[in-house]
Design a protein around this nucleic acid. Structure first.
Length: 640
RNA sequence: GCCGGCGUAACUCAGUUGGUAGAGUAGCUGAUUCGUAAUCAGCAAGCCACCAGUUCGACUCUGGUCGUCGGCUCCA
C-alpha cells in the first residue's frame, strides 16, 4: 500500500506502485491532461516515474511557472532531434532553457533563418508523432560508449562522472533520439502547441573564444498557440518602438559610419537631453550634491596610479601629446580623485557629494555596438561620494531614495541587486564585510526586496545595481552604486577625524541614468516616442489655417517661447487636416490651430493627442496650465 | 573581435537566369488658402556602402574593407 499526500493534505492510497499519471488520473482525466511533471518529496521528476514509497506529491500543471521551463527543455530536445535528422553530421552540445525560450548549441555547418522552415517542418513532424520521453539510467561508462562519437557530450559526461558519486547518469529518449539530460520532461511531444525557431548565432563551446565555434539555434515554445502569438506580438511591439527608428523619425539623433558607436544628437534630441539634465541637476542640488567637471584626456601616469592602465587598457583610446602618452577617460573616477586631493578635508566636510556629467570613451568591440544602448562615447551622470565609514549606510540610503525619485518621474519601476565579493578581489575580509554590511543595512532600511548575486561585485568593492523596467516589461540595468575601497588607497585620500588623526575616506561611485545616451534610448522605447509634455522635444506646434495668418502664428510662437514652451510653427501650404495629422504622428502634445476667429478674440484652439479640442482658450489660461504641467513634470497627459 | 543576415534617392523599401534602376513618404515648383488625422499636378533626387577581381558588360557573381542588424563575449 502506497500513500500519496497531495498539497491539500489529502491522501490517496494505491495497491501497487503508481506512477504520477496514475495519481493524476485518480483525480480526474481533465486534470491529468494538464499535468506536465511532478515534485515528489521536493524532487522534480517525470510523470511516468513509479512511486515506490509513501510520498508527498505536487503536480506541475501547465499553469505552473516551472511547467514552461520543462516544456521548453523538451522543445530543445525536439529541435535537436529535428536538426539531427536533417543534418546527420551535426554534433549536439548543450541546450538549456533561457528567459524567453531555449537554445541548443550544435557543432554543424552554419545555418541561417532560410533553413528554419525545413527544421520547423521536421519539428512539427516530431510533435505530431506524440513521441513519449523515456528516462533511462546508465553508468558513465555506458554513456561514454553511447556518445563516443560526440566529443562535447563525452566531455560533459566525464565532468558529470567526476561530480556525482553514484556514477549514474540519466538519458532521455524520444523515439529513436537519445540525449543526455537531467530531466524532467513533458509526457510526450504532442504537448508542445506553439513552437518557433527565433534566431541563430555563433557561440563558442563553453563560451571560450579559443574553443570551437558552434551554431546556436534559439527557439521558443508554449503550451498554447495563443501564448506564442502573444509573445511574437510583443516582439513586434518592441520592434516598432526601436529607438533607432523613432530617433530617425522624430529627428532626435543619428549615427554615422565616420564615428561608429558615437551618436550625433540633433537639435530636437538636444532639447530633450537638456531637459533630462536640468531635471537631474535640480534633484541633485536638492540632495546636497555639488557639480564638478574633469578633463576628457589625462596622462598615462594617472591611469597607472588608478589601475586602469593595467586592468582596462584594451578599452581605452590613447594618444601622444608632446611625447607623453595620454588616455581618453573611460571613467571619471581618477579625475575625481585629483579633485578631492586639491583640498584638505575635515570629518565635518563629509560626506562630500561631487557629481559630474562626464563624457567617457570606451573602445567596445565592434560587434557589441547597438544604437544608443551600446556606444563608444557616452556621458555618465556620475557622482563620487567621499565619506566616513559610519556614513556608508546613510549615504547609500540617500542614493536609493534619489534613484526612486528620479525613476518614478518617468513611470519606471525598478528592482535592486546586490553583488558581493568576487573571487578575484582586493582588500581585507574586514573591509569587505563592513562594506557589504553597509550596503545590506541600507537596502534593508530602504525596505525594497533585492536579489543577491554572490561573487558578482567589482574587484574593488561590492555594489548595488538598479534595474529598471520599461513599459513593455523589459528590464535594463541603469543605475549602479559601487563601493570603492581601492581608489582612496591608491590615491592616498584622507580627512582629519575628530581625533585629529588622518583617516581614509570611503568612496562610492554611483550613476542613476547610467549612460545618458542609453537612458535616452530606453525612454524613447519606453514611451514609444510619445513623451510626457515636459520631456517632449516639441511641446506645441502652431498651425495657421491659411498663409495670411503665418505672421500672427509666429507671434504666438514667440510669446509661448517666452514662457519656455518649445514650439514650432507649421507654415507649409498644406491643408489643416494634413498639418494636424503630421503633428499627431510625431506625438506633439499640444496642437494649436490659429484661424481668424482666434486672432480676433486673442484665443487659442488647442488639440491634444487624445483628439480632444479645446476652443477659445485665453493665452493666459493656456500658458498658466501648460507651464504648471511642465514645471511639475507631470507624467500624465495634460487635460485642458 | 567571432558567427550569420543586411547595405539601392533624405526616410521606408521593390528590383533572379549579369545588359548602368523604380515606388511611397519627405523635398522643391505651381495651383488650391483650406476649421481639426493625408488637396491636386509637375519637378528634382542614386558612382546601387567602398575597393579589387571575373566578364564584351556587374546593383546582380567572387574576394576584401567599412558600416549595420541578431546573437556570442562584454557591459553604462
Amino acid at each position: 500500500m502506497i500513500n500519496i499526500t497531495l498539497p491539500d493534505k489529502s491522501i490517496k492510497a494505491f495497491e501497487s506502485y503508481p506512477n504520477g499519471m496514475d495519481v493524476a488520473l485518480s483525480i480526474s482525466e481533465g486534470f491529468a491532461k494538464n499535468c506536465v511533471a511532478m515534485e515528489i518529496n521536493g524532487k522534480m521528476v517525470d510523470l511516468n516515474r513509479e512511486i515506490k514509497e509513501d510520498s508527498s506529491l505536487r503536480f506541475i500543471t501547465t499553469k505552473d511557472k516551472e511547467a514552461l521551463e520543462i516544456l521548453r527543455h523538451s522543445a530543445a530536445h525536439v529541435m535537436a532531434e529535428a536538426v539531427q535528422n536533417l543534418y546527420t553530421d551535426a554534433a549536439l552540445t548543450i541546450g538549456p532553457v533561457v528567459e524567453d525560450g531555449f537554445y541548443y548549441d550544435i557543432d554543424m555547418k552554419p545555418v541561417s533563418e532560410e533553413d528554419f522552415p525545413a527544421i520547423e517542418a521536421e519539428i512539427n513532424n516530431i510533435i505530431k508523432a506524440k513521441k513519449t520521453f523515456e528516462r533511462k539510467v546508465v553508468t558513465s561508462e555506458q554513456a561514454l560508449e553511447i556518445f563516443k562519437n560526440n566529443p562535447y557530450k563525452t566531455e560533459l559526461i566525464q565532468e558529470l562522472a567526476a561530480q556525482t558519486a553514484e556514477q549514474e547518469l540519466s538519458l532521455y529518449q524520444q523515439g529513436g533520439f537519445t540525449d543526455l539530460c537531467r530531466g524532467p520532461h513533458i509526457p510526450h511531444t504532442g504537448m508542445i502547441k506553439g513552437i518557433k525557431l527565433m534566431k541563430t548565432s555563433g557561440a563558442y563551446w563553453r563560451a571560450d573564444q579559443s574553443k570551437a565555434q558552434l551554431q546556436r539555434l534559439y527557439g521558443t515554445a508554449f503550451f498554447d498557440k495563443k501564448d506564442l502569438n502573444a509573445y511574437l506580438h510583443l516582439i513586434e511591439e518592441a520592434k516598432k518602438r526601436d529607438h533607432r527608428k523613432i530617433g530617425t523619425k522624430l529627428d532626435l539623433y543619428s549615427f554615422h559610419q565616420e564615428a561608429a558607436g558615437m551618436p550625433f544628437f540633433h537639435a530636437k534630441g538636444m532639447a530633450m537631453w537638456n531637459v533630462l539634465l536640468e531635471y537631474w541637476r535640480e534633484e541633485h542640488k536638492r540632495a546636497g550634491y555639488v557639480e564638478t567637471k574633469t578633463p576628457v584626456m589625462l596622462s598615462r601616469h594617472l591611469w597607472e596610479q588608478s589601475g586602469h592602465w593595467e586592468n582596462y587598457r584594451e578599452n581605452m583610446y590613447t594618444s601622444v601629446v608632446d611625447e607623453e602618452e595620454y588616455a581618453i577617460k573611460p571613467m571619471n573616477c581618477p579625475g575625481g580623485m585629483l579633485l578631492y586631493k586639491t583640498g584638505s578635508y575635515s570629518y565635518r566636510d563629509l560626506p562630500l557629494r561631487a557629481g559630474e556629467i562626464g563624457l567617457v570613451h570606451r573602445h567596445e568591440k565592434s560587434g557589441a555596438l547597438s544604437g544608443l544602448f551600446r556606444v563608444r562615447a557616452f556621458h555618465q551622470d556620475d557622482a563620487h561620494i567621499f565619506m566616513t565609514p559610519e556614513q556608508i549606510e546613510g549615504e547609500i540610503l540617500g542614493v536609493l531614495q534619489l534613484v526612486n525619485r528620479i525613476y518614478s518621474r518617468f513611470g519606471l519601476g525598478f528592482h535592486l541587486e546586490l553583488s558581493t565579493r568576487p573571487k578575484k578581489s582586493i582588500g581585507s575580509d574586514e573591509q569587505w564585510e563592513e562594506a557589504t554590511n553597509g550596503l545590506k543595512n541600507a537596502l534593508n532600511k530602504y525596505g525594497k526586496d533585492y536579489v543577491i548575486n554572490e561573487g558578482d561585485g567589482a574587484f574593488y568593492g561590492p555594489k548595488i545595481d538598479i534595474h529598471i523596467k520599461d513599459a513593455l516589461g523589459r528590464t535594463w540595468q541603469c543605475g549602479t552604486i559601487q563601493l570603492d575601497m581601492a581608489l582612496p588607497e591608491r590615491f592616498d585620500l584622507s580627512y582629519k577625524g575628530a581625533d585629529n588623526e588622518k583617516h581614509r575616506p570611503v568612496m562610492i561611485h554611483r550613476v542613476i541614468y547610467g549612460s545618458i545616451e542609453r537612458f535616452f534610448g530606453i525612454l524613447v522605447e519606453h514611451f514609444a516616442g510619445k513623451f510626457p509634455l515636459w520631456l517632449a522635444p516639441v511641446q506645441a506646434v502652431i498651425l495657421p489655417i491659411n498663409d495670411d495668418l503665418a505672421p500672427y502664428a509666429h507671434g504666438v510662437s514667440s510669446q509661448l517661447s517666452e514662457y519656455g514652451i518649445r514650439c514650432d510653427v507649421d507654415t507649409r501650404t498644406e491643408s489643416l487636416k494634413k498639418k494636424i495629422r503630421d503633428a499627431q504622428v510625431n506625438y506633439t502634445p499640444l496642437i494649436i490651430t490659429i484661424g481668424d476667429k482666434e486672432r480676433e478674440s486673442l484665443t487659442l484652439s488647442v488639440r491634444t493627442l487624445d483628439g480632444n479640442v479645446k476652443m477659445g482658450m485665453t493665452m493666459d489660461g493656456f500658458v498658466k496650465s501648460v507651464v504648471k504641467h511642465i514645471k511639475n513634470r507631470v507624467f500624465e497627459d495634460i487635460v485642458l
